[in-house]
């Protein structure tokens, strides 16, 4: 009893300055309310959020198009000269359109190719792994929330930490080589091999993100009415058939949302790969976001206009994916209403 009253008193003591501040804010806002009426207050409440949105999201979005049509290395728009579609032309100039390495911006096309294969392989594998995990977690398990948490743990880790953890495991004296050594396999420097680094980035990003998709799929599985399964069991339906005829169709809307969500995230892959491989060796794990970052900021020959043009192309892909997602969401809603 006495401890709760103590914490209560401590809490109110801590909150006192906040309450005072809120009272002070109330004085000018009352005046505003008198002038605009209750309806006008909505604008006041909305203003800070929309202002920050406007300055840091909408404005850059618009300026980006202007940027992509200017040249030079300066960052301020006033110091940049208008070049029209030159940056886009530069991205699309190739001597042989079937060979990306013959393009003027071969790094861009390497990044596009890497990102394409990364997205396809990572999303496909991750959704399979997540679905299997969700199906297993949906069984009648003891301590299910514990197991659910196990697969969710890496999702919370920062990408930099994820990158470092795996860099440490994949290096020459690392845990992977140690494990293989037990089977008589000689240590190998995985992160200097073009093919293995690519595979490593896929594996690491699956490890880091699958928990999120497992969670969403599990929620979808749990929403499937239990009596459907009971009825199927009574009819003696085979498990494989139950999965094909009940689970998969009823999970389909969820599965589609998860696939599109995973695609959107995979296209933007950067942080963990940047720490794990730095895009190398060579350009074997150079992905689009890193190309934009390096073209815009990091390289000695930086070219913000070119980076802006590349980011707009990437944005177009994301818009298409998001529209697909919205379309699925709307169809799902209509179904729900019916």
């Amino acid at each position: 009893m006495s401890t709760t009253s103590l914490t209560d008193r401590l809490g109110s003591l801590l909150m006192a300055p906040v309450h005072l501040l809120m009272r002070i804010i109330d004085i000018p806002l009352r005046a505003v309310q008198k002038a605009t009426g209750i309806g006008g207050m909505a604008t006041v409440f909305l203003a800070p959020n929309m202002l920050i949105f406007g300055i840091f999201v909408l404005l850059p979005l618009v300026i980006n198009f202007v940027y992509s049509m200017t040249g030079g290395t300066a960052f301020f728009l006033s110091e940049r000269n208008f070049v029209g579609a030159e940056q886009y032309q530069r991205l699309f100039t190739c001597t042989n359109y079937l060979d990306p390495m013959s393009c003027q911006e071969d790094a861009f096309w390497a990044a596009v190719g890497n990102t394409f294969w990364f997205v396809i392989l990572q999303v496909a594998l991750m959704i399979c792994v997540s679905l299997i995990t969700a199906l297993i977690l949906n069984r009648d398990l003891a301590a299910r929330s514990f197991w659910r948490a196990v697969f969710f743990f890496p999702v919370l880790l920062s990408p930099v930490v994820v990158g470092l953890i795996w860099k440490w495991i994949l290096q020459r004296q690392g845990l992977l080589n140690f494990g293989l050594y037990q089977f008589g396999i000689e240590p190998y420097t995985w992160l200097t091999d073009r093919n293995w680094t690519f595979i490593a980035t896929i594996g690491v990003s699956i490890w880091a993100h699958m928990g999120l998709y497992t969670l969403i799929l599990l929620a979808g599985l749990q929403a499937i009415p239990k009596d459907l399964y009971e009825a199927a069991e009574m009819d003696g339906t085979k498990p494989a058939r139950v999965f094909r005829r009940i689970t998969l169709p009823l999970l389909a809307p969820n599965l589609l949302v998860v696939v599109v969500l995973a695609l959107i995230k995979a296209v933007q892959i950067f942080d963990e790969v940047y720490v794990l491989t730095g895009g190398g060796p060579g350009t074997s794990t150079l992905y689009l976001t890193q190309y934009i970052y390096e073209t815009g900021f990091a390289s000695a020959l930086r070219n913000p206009g070119l980076a802006a043009a590349a980011s707009i192309l990437m944005g177009l892909v994301l818009v298409v994916l998001t529209l697909i997602q919205l379309g699925i969401g709307q169809r799902g809603e209509k179904k729900g209403k019916r």
Partner: peptide, 13 residues
């Protein structure tokens, strides 16, 4: 609108 799409103009702002 992810960061990777607007990072160049956002930096100038």
């Amino acid at each position: 609108v992810p960061l990777s799409v607007i990072m160049v103009p956002l930096y100038s702002i």
